[in-house]
């Protein structure tokens, strides 16, 4: 069962804009934006929030909610206190509103259950901290954050496949599209990872997380190292390397 997502903001425009942004990365997920007061002002209206939660619950039966400042979350909690049926199918996920919504949408698109989607929102908070300059992964193991090497585009495709002692498969692929691993291609990769059901690291970060992929800041010409473990690792590594090497339809 797919999880649907409700986005509650003080501002109707913010909720709508965020649904548009997250929806671009997860086109099959039901995203219900709600926000503002009936007169168009800023705030939270219980009736509107309740209606949005019911719409989402009717669509899929399992709902994860993200809320922005103070009264948005309080209003969601009030709606759940007033309606036990709704409370049974709705989980309020604490986390950063924008990054959390994107992570939630991609996780739901990949078939995560409610717990998985809530965890994606929570983890988005950590990635957010990393994006602020605290935890940039040392992806290439050269002791410096970010890409290493000589800066020249390496060979594309999956020519160099290495099988590790633990059965994991490592290959490389070069980013060819001009904008690198930005939001849309990152979402394509993490959705493919979810679809393959494999455990995948791309330059050392968890490739099921669209936010961690984006935080790599990988630009055109960077050679990405793909490490896949678990059943069907070789096939999954090949699929992902081809996907990255294809330029995501942007070349």
């Amino acid at each position: 069962m797919t999880v649907s997502i409700v986005l509650v903001s003080h501002s109707a425009a913010m909720a709508r804009g965020l649904a548009e942004l997250a929806g671009q990365m997860a086109p099959d997920v039901t995203l219900v934006p709600v926000g503002g007061l009936p007169d168009g002002g800023l705030g939270s209206a219980l009736d509107d929030v309740t209606a949005a939660l019911r719409t989402a619950a009717t669509a899929t039966g399992a709902v994860v909610v993200l809320a922005d400042l103070g009264s948005s979350a309080l209003t969601v909690e009030s709606a759940l206190e007033l309606d036990d049926d709704l409370a049974a199918s709705v989980a309020l996920a604490p986390g950063p509103f924008v990054e959390g919504a994107v992570a939630a949408a991609v996780a739901a698109h990949g078939g995560s259950d409610v717990d998985g989607v809530v965890a994606a929102v929570r983890d988005a908070g950590r990635t957010f901290a990393g994006a602020a300059g605290q935890a940039v992964p040392d992806a290439d193991g050269d002791g410096r954050p970010g890409p290493g090497g000589d800066g020249r585009p390496g060979p594309g495709g999956q020519d160099d496949v290495a099988v590790g002692g633990d059965g994991s498969v490592t290959t490389t692929a070069t980013l060819r599209n001009p904008l690198g691993l930005h939001a849309r291609p990152a979402a394509l990769v993490s959705r493919k990872v979810a679809e393959l059901g494999a455990s995948v690291l791309v330059d050392g970060v968890d490739a099921s997380s669209v936010l961690q992929l984006m935080a790599l800041g990988a630009t055109q010409g960077r050679e990405l190292t793909i490490t896949v473990s678990g059943e069907g690792a070789a096939g999954a590594a090949k699929v992902l390397a081809e996907m990255i090497g294809s330029g995501f339809g942007e070349v």
Partner: peptide
């Protein structure tokens, strides 16, 4: 309670609303 929750708009809506509920 239910009217305040629906109409106040700010955090005091759910807070006073829950208090009255």
């Amino acid at each position: 309670a239910t009217t305040l929750m629906s109409t106040v708009g700010g955090a005091s809506g759910p807070l006073y609303g829950t208090a009255f509920l």
